[in-house]
Design a protein around this nucleic acid. Structure first.
Length: 207
DNA sequence: AAAACGGGGGC
DNA sequence: GCCCCAGTTTT
């Protein structure tokens, strides 16, 4: 079994457990903002902050024009709220001023936005625009190495290796399914190998 | 290369 | 009460 066959079989098993979530109806602006809020932040807190924000300020113009203190309070559950509130308004204003209110759909322009790094840009590309991209966060990086799919020390190396191994039609669901797996079973510390459905497909020794 | 930003959850 | 976490920017 080569690595492509391995990852296909792994995902087949994981998809029996997890359902892929499509965030915010794929509205590029909401995907972008939610992804910024998700940085270094767990799902529940990300969801709460995102709901707080868009419930009161449902579009890019209202977010950009809101008092910063109000944005801070709404996104507070996501943590890093001073930084994130400022970035969100800064990003919104830039998109209004320079892109006519439309989120750019290419890596270069996304990376130019404040608070947007490679992982966030890839999330927007693949979730909002269905473009081929693999967002590599700490879950994807850690788990890819545990499976023996890659042998990398930096997330960007992992991204390049995964692009060679994983069939393109799986890229859109890769990040979400691995995050769910990483939160519940293949945890950063103390992975629950006894409950893992990937016995026989994973190189990681729980010892 | 390392610090800083932060609340919430696990133990 | 301490340690860890869906990154990015700044020093």
């Amino acid at each position: 079994m080569d690595k492509t066959e391995q990852v296909i079989e792994i995902f087949k098993r994981l998809k029996e457990i997890y359902t892929i979530r499509i965030f915010e109806g794929k509205d590029p602006y909401k995907v972008l903002i939610r992804t910024i809020l998700s940085q270094r932040t767990r799902d529940e807190n990300t969801d709460q902050a995102t709901a707080n924000l868009f419930n009161k300020y449902p579009d890019i113009n209202s977010v950009a024009n809101a008092p910063v203190e109000d944005i801070e309070e709404l996104v507070h559950p996501a943590g890093f709220y001073h930084v994130k509130a400022a970035r969100i308004q800064e990003v919104s204003q830039i998109i209004i001023d320079e892109y006519d209110g439309v989120v750019p759909d290419n890596m270069k322009e996304l990376l130019d936005l404040p608070g947007v790094g490679r992982k966030t840009a890839n999330c927007v590309l693949v979730f909002a625009f269905c473009k081929p991209a693999i967002p590599v966060d700490t879950h994807v990086h850690r788990i890819s190495n545990r499976w023996g799919l890659v042998d990398t020390s930096k997330p960007e190396q992992t991204e390049l290796e995964l692009m060679k191994i994983v069939p393109k039609d799986m890229w859109i669901e890769l990040n979400d399914i691995m995050v769910q797996f990483g939160q519940t079973i293949c945890k950063p510390t103390s992975p629950q190998c006894g409950d893992c459905p990937l016995i026989g497909l994973c190189a990681f020794d729980n010892g």
